[in-house]
Every structure is written in structure tokens, then in C-alpha cells.
Amino acid sequence: MSKEMLEIKNLKTSFRIKDNYYAAVDDVTLTLNKNEILGIVGESGSGKSALAFSVMGLHNRAKIEGNILFKEHDIANISPSKLNKLRGEAMAMIFQDPLTALNPLMIVGEQISETLILHKKEMSQKQRKEKVIDLLNKVGIPMPEHVYGQYPHELSGGMRQRIIIAIAIANKPELLIADEPTTALDVTIQAQILDLIKTLKDDIDAGIILITHDLGVVAEMADRVAVMYAGQIVEIADVHTLFDNPLHPYTRSLLNSVPNTQEGQEELHVIQGIVPSLSKLPREGCRFAARIPWIDDSAHEENPVMHEVAPGHFVRCTCHNHFHFPDESKEDSTHGIS
């Protein structure tokens, strides 16, 4: 059996705005292995959440092209009933905002047991309740019998996120997608939740796609990292390579704009211009070119594709060979052709 459990090929997810379709995810190809955490990093508007929703088949009115191969199915072309059999059973999702992701009028026990009702029909009501209590224990909820009958608004944000995780892992999914799972939480709670996700990963042996804008979270959690910009993956590598030897100008710029906890006062790097909105995305050429205007146009490819620069390390476009920050001269740039 191959280690690959999810294969996305040339995925293009487009939304209709007025009379035109605009691709929020464009030409995304990647694989996820068993028991691996793949981090997907990008800023708002990069298409990372749209990618996650495509994999879960949660886009209602989007046009999806390409293939999402998972367990002998292609989620890009799947019937609703087959999709519903996969969702909650073989693949599950953890959401960003634990405040709104739970039904305010349903006790949490009922919300967790719904996944069991849907996929474990043979379970008796008593077995289900036992299983839910067991899950609440597993995600670290104190007094699970009591919490079972509580409503979401009676719980703190961290507790609610644990409930969402309990829902996601109820049927031991093979694929878990975590969409900014800690963005809405305090740092100490974030550390606990990330820890929990890691423990559970080993427990259920799942492949995890972790979507975040926080490079620190990726550095701590991921095995491999894909960086997204304007709907495309611009760089993908294992986590050490990506942080030690980032190549794509966007990856390098992003890393330089994080206030580093190690060093002090130096000026942060600012990426010029703004992330283009969906309808204004450049459709041709290197999409990052407009944000690095000091790099000569000839450095970019006409139709940028992914290049494998080292085993498992892919970079889009050729511009990384000629890239340097505006305040360093070309010669300082250690990366690239020699």
C-alpha cells in the first residue's frame, strides 16, 4: 500500500461573481501521506481555505476542475450521497471559530453523537453516549458527563474548540483538515490545542492538512509545508528546508516580515503593494511579480510552473534565481544560480 492517501491534481476552484468565474484556487497539485502534517500557509485571500473546502466538498456553488483523489474516489466529481459517507467518517474538519461552528440551540453531547448516528448506525443509544463521554475525555474536557448536557455558550472558547475536535475525530478519520484551528484562541490555549491535535494524530494515524497564517504554528507542527499566494502554491518543501532555505520571493518576504522572537529591534520587511482581490488576480505570468517590481521582468517565466529544485522541494517560477531584497545588492543574494 502506498503512503500517499490524498492526491490533488491540477485543482481549480472558481466562484461566480456576476457573470464571470474567478479561480480562488488555481493549478494546485499536492499529495498528503499517512500520519503526516502538511501545513498550508498563506495570507487572507491566498485561497488556502477555499482549498480546504474543496477537499471536503463543502463548496456549494463553486466550479471545481481537476482531481481530488481520496480512497478510490474523486471528490471533484462525486455524488452527494457518496460524499456524505466520506465526510465525518473518513475525512473530517476542524474549524476556525469555535464560537459559531456549534449549533447554539443543541447540547454539545447531541452535536457530537450526530456524527455517530450518521456513520455508526449499529450503535445503541447507550453505546453512543458512552462513546461521546469517552471522546470528551480524550480531548481533555473535565467533567464530561456534565459537559455532555451543556450548551455551547456555557463553555469557554478553548473548550468549544475541543468539542469541535471531538466531533472531527469521533469516527477516527484518515484525513483531518484543520482550518486555522487556533486563530481565535489565546496563546496558552493555542499551545494546548496544537498539542492535542498532535497527540490525536498519532492516536488515529491520520493525515492532517493544517491551514494557518501563522508561520510559528507551521514551524512547530508541520512535516511538510506548502506556501500559497493568490490561489497558487508557490513553494512546497519539508519543514526544515522551507525555513532554512526558502527560495520563492514570497516565502522569503513572509519570513522576513514576522517579528522574530530571537532578535530585537530591526526593521521588519514589508511586502510592497497589496494582495490582489479575487477578481483582480493576474491570470498570466508570475502572480507575485507586481509585489517585487525591482526584479527585472525577464527573471520571471511566461507561464510559471513548479520546478523541483531538490528532491521534494518545488518552487514556482524562475524568479527566485534572481531575487534579492531591495536593500541588499544582487551579489548578496546567496540563493540562485552560481
Partner: peptide, 21 residues
């Protein structure tokens, strides 16, 4: 606890950070 909870941006420090935490 607060300082320990900050995610470290260097993946090499992962283990050390985990132990520290």
C-alpha cells in the same frame, strides 16, 4: 507559561520547545 506558549519559528527548536513547555 505565556512565554513558553509562543510558537517558535525555527522548526529545529521543536523538540527543545516541547520539552521547555
Amino acid at each position: 507559561r505565556l512565554v513558553a506558549a509562543i510558537p517558535d519559528i525555527d522548526p529545529k527548536n521543536r523538540e527543545a520547545q516541547k520539552q521547555f513547555r
